[in-house]
């Protein structure tokens, strides 16, 4: 999933302090799972903003809350079509995709981000999410034992580990597993150490961020 983290309330207040009518827009997908931008968080943020305005004596402030199934699909975003014009601004607490898609659809209404979008990751335990994928566009996991050096090695080495790997940990942080140690352990477990012996060729990064904004176009599913 896309993992996000809540922005501090003071930062959000700074964006919207001059607004009178606000919509806090949550998303039922990834940001709900990582407890940053779902219905519950939309409620908390909206309530905090209402009290902020009331406490400042802004008498006619209105802060509504709404949570959509997704903010990255036209059909769900259309659900606020009829009410969007009631607001001076929208605070979207979806990931960066949701914030942007909302802004694109409601062209004349300012949309502010309520979370920091962090990475593609997994829930290791409640309250702990860690990165797994950088969406480089050319998956190499078949050769690395199912562990990604692009996302999990601090130097994204395709031929690791570097000389800083110590007791299975990365040189930049003793808490952090060395991705290449994990790869080697895993290759041993699946009896594929032959893959380690193979020199990894130079990667085509044009499918990564480097190639500019990307798209996936599937004619087989387009109408």
């Amino acid at each position: 999933m896309i993992v996000a983290d809540k922005k501090p309330v003071e930062e959000i207040i700074e964006y919207v302090k001059d607004c009178k009518k606000l919509l806090v827009l949550g998303c039922n997908e990834c940001v709900t799972v990582c407890e940053a931008g779902g219905k519950k968080e939309a409620g908390v943020l909206a309530s905090a903003l209402r009290m902020y305005f009331a406490n400042r004596g802004v008498e006619d402030a209105l802060v509504d809350e709404r949570t959509l199934e997704r903010q990255c699909d036209h059909e769900y975003l259309e659900e606020i079509r009829d009410i969007a014009d009631n607001y001076d601004a929208i605070v979207s607490i979806a990931c960066g995709v949701g914030v942007q898609f909302t802004a694109e659809k409601y062209h004349s209404i300012p949309v502010y981000p309520g979370v920091n979008t962090c990475f593609l990751g997994a829930t290791e335990q409640r309250g702990l999410w860690t990165e797994r994928c950088q969406a480089c566009g050319q998956c190499i996991l078949a050769y690395t034992g199912g562990i990604c050096p692009v996302a999990r090695c601090a130097k994204r080495l395709l031929n690791g580990p570097c000389g800083g790997s110590s007791n299975g940990k990365c040189e930049i942080n003793k808490e952090l597993d060395c991705a290449w140690q994990l790869i080697i352990d895993r290759l041993k477990a699946i009896d594929r150490m032959d893959l380690y012996e193979k020199l990894f060729g130079i990667k085509d990064w044009s499918t990564d961020r480097a190639g500019g904004p990307r798209k996936v176009q599937r004619e087989d599913v387009q109408i």
Partner: peptide, 27 residues
């Protein structure tokens, strides 16, 4: 490959690692 930038005087910088050290030797 070089030490990670977090050890240096510009820890907020990007790192590149377009190639790794072996791929540079190959280059």
């Amino acid at each position: 490959s070089g030490d990670h930038q977090s050890f240096g005087d510009h820890p907020q910088g990007q790192n590149v690692h377009d190639l790794d050290s072996m791929q540079l030797a190959w280059t």
